[in-house]
């Protein structure tokens, strides 16, 4: 029995999924409506809501977890989401571009921000924390300069009940998240360039001596991280409607926490895309369910912090036991 549990924990994707299911079961029981009636937490509409909001984190976490596995860290996703929403809104509303062109402009933010992070890390050899801290400041700052305190209400120009390719707007984020998770999980596990990310994160010097093009691998992960953050920003503004400079503030830390909860090591070489995305769902459920518990609203951040610490500590204890 205990050996089986340990095996589950060792496959960190499975243990993260188990934590998520246990969390859902807990809230289902705790929030059970007295005297029957509609369950405030376990219902289709709420489930979609959780997925829709978690996916904003989840899509960005796919790329951010790759950066973490490579031994780096990306602090820019929140700011990239904001600048993307602002650029898309500006081009669409003020410059009167078509929606597809505006979306491409928004994604351009990701390419530029990722390219800048990669250049600072690979060419200038800045520590990733400093490089992406800088990019975070620049990106967020540009968002404020473009908006000058305004916001772009994109929803006004988006037709009601708009469903691109027949998919309702609310469903786009979850579907994109699942697709990206599957694609990048497979990439990281079964494609040479994906395995090289693990090698670079595990031992960068050995990677160089093994013939792995370390610079290319790092450039790839920072680009993917920023472009996916940007994509997340596009989806956020299409669904939510407003491009603003203070959007997604602090998301980067939640995303890093999700990756860590999903088994990533901040010293690199360890972690998974699926784990990170499941991690964002764990926090998504917390953010959704806690406000429904009377009096718990103010405990939100505290509980999130405790959950991160607990999961990581248990993980380390088990890892140490394995020896």
């Amino acid at each position: 029995m205990s050996a089986a549990w340990k095996a589950v924990w060792r496959t960190r994707e499975l243990s993260t999924l188990f934590i998520l299911l246990a969390e859902i079961a807990f809230f289902a029981w705790y929030l059970w409506p007295e005297g029957g009636g509609r369950h405030p937490f376990v219902n289709g509409e709420n489930g979609l809501l959780i997925l829709k909001y978690s996916a904003i984190y989840g899509i960005a976490a796919v790329g951010a977890s790759m950066v973490i596995i490579s031994g780096g860290v990306d602090l820019a996703p929140g700011a990239v989401i904001a600048l993307t929403s602002v650029v898309l809104g500006h081009q669409y509303l003020e410059a009167q571009w078509s929606l597809p062109a505006s979306i491409l402009a928004g994604l351009g933010v990701g390419v530029l921000a990722g390219g800048l992070s990669a250049a600072l890390v690979v060419l200038v050899r800045l520590p990733p924390f400093i490089a992406t801290l800088g990019v975070m400041g620049i990106t967020r700052g540009l968002a404020y300069i473009v908006t000058e305190g305004r916001f772009f209400d994109v929803s006004a120009r988006i037709p009601p009940n708009w469903a691109p390719l027949g998919v309702p707007l609310d469903w786009i984020a979850p579907i994109v998240m699942v697709l990206l998770t599957v694609v990048f999980q497979l990439f990281m596990r079964h494609v040479q360039a994906g395995r090289a990310v693990f090698a670079v994160g595990g031992n960068e010097t050995a990677a160089r001596y093994t013939g792995i093009q370390v610079g290319r691998i790092k450039t790839m992960v920072y680009l993917v991280s920023a472009v996916l953050a940007s994509l997340s920003g596009v989806i956020l503004i299409l669904g939510q409607g407003q491009g603003k400079a203070d959007l997604a503030t602090g998301y980067e830390l939640d995303i890093i926490a999700s990756a860590v909860v999903g088994g990533a090591s901040l010293s690199g070489g360890r972690g998974s895309v699926v784990g990170a995305v499941l991690g964002t769902l764990i926090f998504g459920v917390l953010r959704n369910a806690l406000p429904q518990i009377p009096g718990a609203t103010f405990y939100d951040r505290l509980i999130v912090g405790l959950v991160v610490v607990t999961i990581v500590v248990v993980d380390q204890i088990l890892a140490r036991r394995q020896g």
């Binding site: 494609v191 040479q192 693990f198 090698a199 050995a206 160089r208 093994t210 013939g211």
Partner: peptide, 28 residues
């Protein structure tokens, strides 16, 4: 230790990474 091995990866990948890296192919 510092230049030759990846302690986060299994022996199989330690053995294969050199050849894979030199290959231009993507699929493993």
């Amino acid at each position: 230790q510092s230049q030759g091995l990846f302690f986060n990866l299994p022996i199989s990948e330690n053995l294969l990474l050199g050849r894979e890296a030199a290959r231009d192919g993507w699929v493993r």
